[in-house]
Simulated assay, not measured.
Amino acid sequence: MKKVVAYFSASGTTAEKAKALAKIAGADLKEIVPKEKYTSRDLNWMDKKSRSSLESADEDCRPAIEGGAFNLSGYDRVYIGFPIWWYTAPRVIQSFIETNDLSGKEIYLFATSGGSDAAKALSDMKKLYPTLSFMGASLLNGPVTKDIGG
């Protein structure tokens, strides 16, 4: 089974977990990079007018991704990682899902968070993309010690 870990990391925390997971799972690694990088001001969740707050509130928001679609044709399993924003995945994850053909692939979500779990993100993704095979979601705040895909 060929695997890939695709991740978005705003501050480096999720990147660290993605790299560890890729190593343990024997997966390739691809970074989801927004065309417009997030600044610390953009990430200020206390500011209702910050970019991340405005994007989270806008269900139609799909931030552009640097380089467009990835070539995922050879992969059977895709791990998608992100920080939890407002109890779910950032809108750039929806951009990634909608830009790439994930049909027929096992999809495992993983997240980092200061206080939320990944359950709502999984529920949201299953609701938004009912034809895709979301197999589970894990919160990776501690050391990554095993392949979350089993």
Rank of each mutant, 00 (worst) to 15 (best):
A6K: 07
Y7F: 11
F8Y: 12
A10V: 07
A10C: 04
S11V: 10
S11T: 15
S11C: 08
G12E: 06
A15W: 02
A15M: 04
A15C: 01
E16K: 14
K17W: 09
K17S: 09
K17D: 07
K17Y: 09
K19Q: 15
A20T: 05
L21S: 06
A22Q: 05
A22T: 08
A22I: 11
A22R: 05
I24F: 06
A25R: 06
A25C: 11
G26Q: 08
D28K: 09
L29V: 02
K30V: 05
I32N: 02
I32P: 03
K35S: 14
E36L: 13
Y38K: 00
Y38T: 01
S40T: 15
D42K: 10
D42H: 12
D42R: 12
L43A: 01
N44I: 11
W45N: 08
K49S: 15
K49F: 12
K49Y: 14
S52H: 12
S53T: 12
L54N: 08
E55Y: 03
E55M: 11
A57H: 11
A57D: 13
D58F: 12
E59S: 14
E59F: 11
D60Q: 14
D60G: 15
R62F: 09
P63C: 13
I65W: 00
E66D: 13
G67T: 09
G67N: 09
G68S: 10
A69V: 10
F70K: 12
F70G: 07
N71R: 08
N71E: 14
N71H: 12
N71G: 12
N71M: 09
S73R: 14
G74P: 07
G74I: 09
Y75A: 07
D76G: 13
D76L: 06
D76I: 07
D76T: 11
R77P: 04
I80A: 02
P83Q: 01
P83C: 08
I84G: 07
W85Q: 05
W86Y: 14
T88W: 02
T88D: 07
A89Y: 12
P90I: 06
P90E: 02
P90R: 10
R91S: 07
V92G: 00
I93K: 10
Q94A: 13
Q94T: 13
F96A: 00
E98P: 06
E98R: 14
